[in-house]
Amino acid sequence: MQMAQIGDLRLHYSVTGPEDGTPVVFANSLGTDFRLWDEVLPLLPAGLRILRYDKRGHGLSDTPSGPYSMGALITDVERLMDHTGFSNAIFVGLSIGGMIAQGLAAKRLDLVRAMVLSNTAAKIGTRDMWADRIEAVRTGGLNSIVGPTMDRWFSKPFHDAEEFPGWRNMFLRTPAEGWTGCAAAIAGTDFLSSTSGLRLPTLAIAGSEDGSTPPDLVFETADLIPGAQKELIRGAGHLPCVEKPGEYAALLTAFLKAQGAAG
């Protein structure tokens, strides 16, 4: 188990792969920990230096009192990358992780040379929508929103998969303070202007059944960045790396190799 003291915050992270490997950072979604990537990593090229982490309020990382700002979430991974010696990395972010990717690229281009924006956008939802969900969780816990969340996250057939209950449990075991804290960060974020100024290799991935960030929303954000690639994974929802790990890994592998990654 690897823990980093980042200011007054302790973050749980994992670094794997050769020290001289191509640096790749993975940032997961709201309500998941870094096990989100477990099925994808073994399918990626050899020779990658991979950093995964649990953002504040998730997994084994600390859960400070919320609400959190997107700036704080960006600073957390910025400091973690400095702590672990990651720079000039390819950053893979899903959902809120993709928002963090956009913000970090705008802030520290020395840290991010290419990015994968998976099931994310420059702006997700409305303040009122997030306020309603935050209030529901504060009143009734995550159990009060788990049903609609799972419907947005996964295609209908996946609800019958043997691993589905595990993802539902992961969501339910997220600290409520961590979920509402990060939800507030999403609510307060609009990166339309800053993302439109980015000029770096970008791959956008969407799931055809995604009820949280539908393909049109994902691709509208990709269109802000000249030359961004757009890929749709059919039959998958908000977490295509879970439902279709083989297809997801194939898209990542092609993009990584195009950036000169080993393997």
Rank of each mutant, 00 (worst) to 15 (best):
M1H: 14
I6A: 04
I6N: 13
D8G: 03
D8R: 13
S14N: 12
S14E: 15
D20E: 14
D20F: 01
P23F: 00
V25A: 05
V25M: 08
A27E: 02
N28I: 06
S29M: 02
S29F: 01
T32E: 06
D33E: 04
L36R: 08
D38P: 00
E39T: 06
V40C: 04
L41D: 03
L43W: 01
L44P: 09
L44G: 10
P45Q: 06
A46Y: 11
G47S: 07
G47F: 10
R49T: 14
R49E: 06
I50P: 02
L51Q: 14
R52T: 15
G59K: 12
L60W: 07
T63W: 06
T63I: 04
G66Y: 10
G66S: 10
P67Q: 13
Y68G: 07
S69P: 08
S69H: 12
M70I: 10
A72G: 12
A72W: 07
L73E: 13
I74C: 05
I74F: 02
R79G: 07
M81E: 14
D82K: 15
D82C: 12
G85S: 05
G85N: 13
F86R: 13
A89R: 15
V92H: 07
S95L: 04
I96R: 10
A101D: 12
Q102Y: 02
G103M: 08
G103L: 07
A105N: 03
L109A: 15
L117Q: 14
A122N: 10
I124Y: 15
A131N: 14
D132A: 15
V137Q: 01
L142F: 02
N143M: 04
S144P: 05
V146T: 08
G147Y: 03
P148M: 09
F154D: 04
F158C: 08
H159N: 08
E163G: 00
P165I: 00
G166C: 05
M170I: 15
R173D: 06
A176S: 10
E177F: 01
T180E: 12
T180M: 02
A184Y: 09
A184I: 04
A185W: 09
I186H: 03
A187E: 01
T189E: 08
S194G: 09
S196I: 13
L198V: 06
I205C: 02
A206S: 08
E209I: 00
T213N: 14
P214H: 10
P214F: 03
V218M: 03
F219P: 03
A228K: 10
Q229A: 13
R234P: 00
G235L: 00
A236Q: 06
P240N: 00
V242N: 03
E243K: 06
A249H: 11
A254S: 15
K257H: 09
Q259W: 13
Q259G: 08
A262L: 15
